[in-house]
Design a protein around this nucleic acid. Structure first.
Lengths: 100, 100
DNA sequence: GCCACATATTGACCGACATCGATATGTAAG
DNA sequence: CTTACATATCGATGTCGGTCAATATGTGGC
């Protein structure tokens, strides 16, 4: 349960957002993530996964030697709801464009 | 029109979020903002207002010697919508808690 | 014009964090 | 239990950005 500030800090990194995009709607193990992130070392990916894990923004599952991650979309939605409540209280929910 | 990454970077600072909260639903001039932000100097406040202005997250109005700012809630909502679209596409909009 | 006030910009400093190589930990196979 | 592989942690380095004092710019009054 992170607040708006911590959520923003976690999101405020390009590498992390790339990893989040990779993990959206699917499970990937660390090795596969490293494979998709050209130019980023394994320790760096592992570091970012730890940040995301500590923030509760990813799900984790171990399978043998591999550890799989996937994005916790519900938590993302909760954090966005918190930002909207704090900083856009007068905008009707229906007006928030989610499609396209 | 900033993307998810720049939006997160702008939001990822406590001082900026405090200023944004002050400017939510009302106009304040720089002097009044400085007055509310104890421990933060006028140049620092001005710097953060410039960041918010460049990001399009505040409205600006000059009145004589004073410059007034207020939060651009619509832009906040647009940016949150973008995050939801990118990182929570499978969460129904109705499930996003905005109240309370 | 000059002065007083409000805000913005500049330049320097410092802390936070992203990144890496090296190494440690964990796990399964043989 | 040793080896090989997958992931995590450590320590060092470099960069980015928040902060301030000092100064510049802008605005209205006289």
């Amino acid at each position: 349960m992170i607040d708006s500030l911590d959520f923003a800090k976690v999101m405020a990194d390009e590498t992390r957002q790339r990893i989040m995009a990779l993990l959206c709607c699917r499970w990937l193990c660390v090795g596969d993530i490293v494979g998709e992130m050209q130019g980023i070392s394994q320790p760096t990916v592992s570091h970012h996964l730890a940040v995301l894990r500590d923030a509760g923004l990813v799900h984790t599952r171990r399978d043998g030697k591999q550890v799989f991650y996937s994005l916790n979309q519900d938590e993302v939605a909760v954090c966005c709801g918190r930002i909207l409540r704090n900083f856009a209280p007068q905008v009707p929910v229906a007006a928030i464009s989610v499609s396209e």
